[in-house]
Every structure is written in structure tokens, then in C-alpha cells.
Write a protein that binds this DNA or RNA. Structure first.
Lengths: 226, 226
DNA sequence: GCAGGTTATGATTAATTTATCAATTAAATC
DNA sequence: GATTTAATTGATAAATTAATCATAACCTGC
């Protein structure tokens, strides 16, 4: 059992069970049953590979892929019904790394998973600690350290900081940020998010000491680290 | 035509011709007709990707792959006859990056080639960076750098610059520009746009240093980069 | 069910961008 | 060179968006 983590996104229970069974021997497995939870899991779990069913309720696999590709190069292996084969070319161009048509051969699946993981030369020494400047965030024990001082953070603030640190310098629109952290549509929740950001920023700046504004707003666009 | 080089290893003349034809538009193509010449070409040409037929006279594709993998991680895309499918899993484990069964779909081939080549390209946030002269614009972190100096830009000005940089040298009519940036009809908003362009131009020229007028107006027509 | 912290909401204020106007300057046409 | 049309500029008003504060609602563990 490695510490390699695979996210399975599949709404059909039977397929999901099958995938989990065959992958669980060799990998850590996390699961999502629809597009929204897929994105949430993607952000919180930071998987090393994603197996993505195309046919999902509501948010389609395609749009999940697109969203993920905005911030990440994580390998994505798409599952597709045989009649979708025309779509596949477009999908590969949009960022999918490989695909399998259902029903798929288990051994081939495993082999293709291996191929994707092999490409990635991720230094496994540092777990999934996130660092930016003086900020160190460790998801596994839910702890943030800034300049050596511990900073206890409530869940939401932690999640926001984690998302920002996971994609440094990338601009997040308020909508984007809210939907991935809260996992629900951004409906005039503007102020809620603003308040959280404000609180988080104060705490971070307090410890960072420097007049460094780590979390800055880009007027009319969103928020990012600097 | 990029400077990306692909090595085709295929003994059948017709398949080889087909592959060359479809790839030659986008890539440099070198060819080998058997295992021995494949290894020779691999060493002398240093291709960025190899398309390898499994069924070769004398030295088989499998052993070519093995030999290559001793010294190189170059992406290898294997071509296989339909009845070899069982072999494929073993092959992927031995280091092949992908495979296609013959007869293959051209578009799928091209897409899979792209996928393999994409892995080596720049990190995502560098991907859609736009550059023109001393100007570098990065949409993902909403940042403009000119001669190494950051230039913060408001939304509209940023959008205008982005549009210009995306189509360098192309002339934009005022109407054109306004409608794509504002997303609404150009109804005597003439001055609004003019003011924005003027402001943007000043900021750009300030940092560009040179009397370089990056954004020039073409009298009576519109605006373009130079 | 209570006490702690956490999260959401609303009202207010501050900050910044965007639009508009008027006046000037520059370019083209004749 | 006079005239017309387009472009620039600076100033100012309007509109948007963000930050802050105080407070209420909500949980969660005890």
C-alpha cells in the first residue's frame, strides 16, 4: 500500500465498488459521486490521479475536467461509454491524459493507472505539506505554522488558506473560492466570504509580522497570494 | 511546424506513409523500418516521442522498447494488432506510455500524441502567458510584467491589453474592441473606450521606458500593437 | 441544554474603478 | 491653411466592489 491517492468520480454504485476494490490494494482511494463533490474532494484530498466518469448527474465530467485543469496538471483518466468515442479526441485535447471505454478490462485499467503515475516524478519525501513564504500548512494534522508560531484556524478559514496555498499566485474569483470551499453555489454569499477572508488575513498578517499582505484582493477579479 | 521531433518505427510502407503524412504538418518526422535502425535513429536524432510498431522483422518492438528504456524516458506510443491486446498490459508495465490498436483513428492518434507531448510542457500557470516585446501578461494570476516590473491594471485595462496581446499586430476597430471587452453593443461609447486606451497606453509606456509606443492608433481605423 | 467557539448576516464605511464631460491637441482632407 | 474629424487629456461624478464592525444564528462537545 503506497501513499498514492486516487480519486474515483463515478455515480454508478456498482462501477464505483468495482474500482475501489481493484485499486484499494495498491492505493489510497477516495470517492465522489457527482461533479460538485468531485471538485470539493479534489481540493481537499489533493489526489495523485483522478478516474473520472464522463456521465455524471448535473455537472458533467467534461466541466469537472475543465475546472480541474485551470489549476492542476494532475493525471485524469476518463471513463466513457463506447458510443462516446467521438468525444474522446476532444477530451484528450482538453486535458484528459487517457481514457477507457466501459466495460473496461481490469488489468488494462491498472496498467494505465500505473503508466500515468509513473510519469509523475513527485518527490515523496515532503508529504503534502504546503509552503508559501513564511507560511507552512499541513493538511494531515490540520495545522498552520507561520514564522515558527502555531496559528490555530477554524475549518473554513483553514480551507480557504489551503486552497490558496495549493495554487500559489493563481487568482481565485470569489465564486470559485466559495464554491470549492463551501461546496455549494455562490448565491449572494459574497459577504460571508469577505468576512472570512478578512479574518483570515488579519490572523496571517499578525503572525507574518512584516507588512506583507499575503492575501491580497485583485479588485473586481478575486483574491490571490503574493 | 514545431521543432518537436517524432520517430516512426514501422515496417509496413503504407502505414508508415500514412503516419508521416498526418504528422508532418505539425511535427518533424524521422522514420525507421526495423528495430536496428530504430535504435540507431533514436540515438542520433533524439526524438521527443516514438511511435513504435510491435511487429517488426528481427528485433521486435518489445525489445526496442526495453533497450530504449534503459537510457531514456522518452514517451513511446505503441502500435499493436488487435489480437495482441493481451500483450499490451505487459507492455505498459515495461515502459510504454500508450498504445493504439490497428487500424487506428487518425484523430485519436494525433490527440494521443499531443497528450504525451503535453506532459513535458511548462507548468499550467505558465501555459497561457502572453508575451509581446517587453510585456508579459499572465491571465492566471492576473499580472502584467513589463521589463521585470509589475504593472497592476484594473479589470478593463487588463482585458484590453490581453485582447491586444492575444492577437498581436492585428488591428482592432474601436467597435470590435469595445464589444469584445465590454460584451455590449458599441453605442456612442466611443469616448469611454478612448479614455481607457489612453490610460493604458500611458502606463505601458511609462514602464516600457523606450519611446516605444506599444499601443498605437491607426487613424480612422482602430488600434494595434507594434 | 449550556458554553465555547464558529459561521452567517446586515449595515456602514472605505476604496477603487469606470463613465462622462469639456477642452485641447493632433491628423487628414480639400 | 482652414476645416473637419479623430484622439488625448484632466477633472469629476457615478457606480461597483471590498473591508470592517457589531450582532445574531448556529453548532459541537460536554
Amino acid at each position: 500500500m503506497t501513499n498514492t491517492k486516487i480519486l474515483i468520480v463515478e455515480d454508478h454504485r456498482d462501477v464505483r465498488d468495482l474500482l475501489r476494490d481493484v485499486l484499494a490494494n495498491d492505493y489510497q482511494v477516495v470517492e465522489a459521486v457527482d461533479g460538485v463533490s468531485a471538485l470539493a474532494k479534489f481540493n481537499t484530498e489533493a489526489p495523485d490521479l483522478i478516474i473520472l466518469d464522463l456521465m455524471l448527474p448535473q455537472v458533467t465530467g467534461e466541466s469537472v475536467l475543465k475546472t480541474i485543469r485551470k489549476t492542476s496538471a494532475v493525471p485524469v483518466l476518463v471513463l466513457t461509454a463506447i458510443q462516446d468515442k467521438q468525444k474522446v479526441v476532444a477530451l484528450l485535447e482538453e486535458g484528459a491524459n487517457d481514457y477507457l471505454t466501459k466495460p473496461f478490462d481490469i488489468d488494462e485499467l491498472l496498467a494505465r493507472v500505473q503508466v500515468q503515475l509513473r510519469q509523475r516524478t513527485k518527490p515523496l519525501n515532503e508529504q503534502n505539506k504546503l509552503t508559501y513564504g513564511a507560511i507552512v500548512l499541513n493538511p494531515s494534522d490540520h495545522q498552520v505554522v507561520i514564522n515558527g508560531q502555531k496559528l490555530p484556524l477554524p475549518k473554513k478559514e483553514f480551507a480557504i488558506l489551503q486552497l490558496l496555498l495549493a495554487h500559489p499566485k493563481q487568482v481565485f474569483t470569489k465564486e470559485n473560492l466559495y464554491e470549492t470551499v463551501w461546496g455549494e453555489p455562490y448565491l449572494n454569499a459574497e459577504n460571508t466570504l469577505n468576512v472570512h477572508i478578512s479574518n483570515l488575513r488579519n490572523k496571517v498578517n499578525d503572525l507574518a509580522g512584516t507588512p506583507n499582505k499575503y492575501i491580497i484582493s485583485i479588485w473586481g477579479i478575486g483574491v490571490r497570494l503574493v
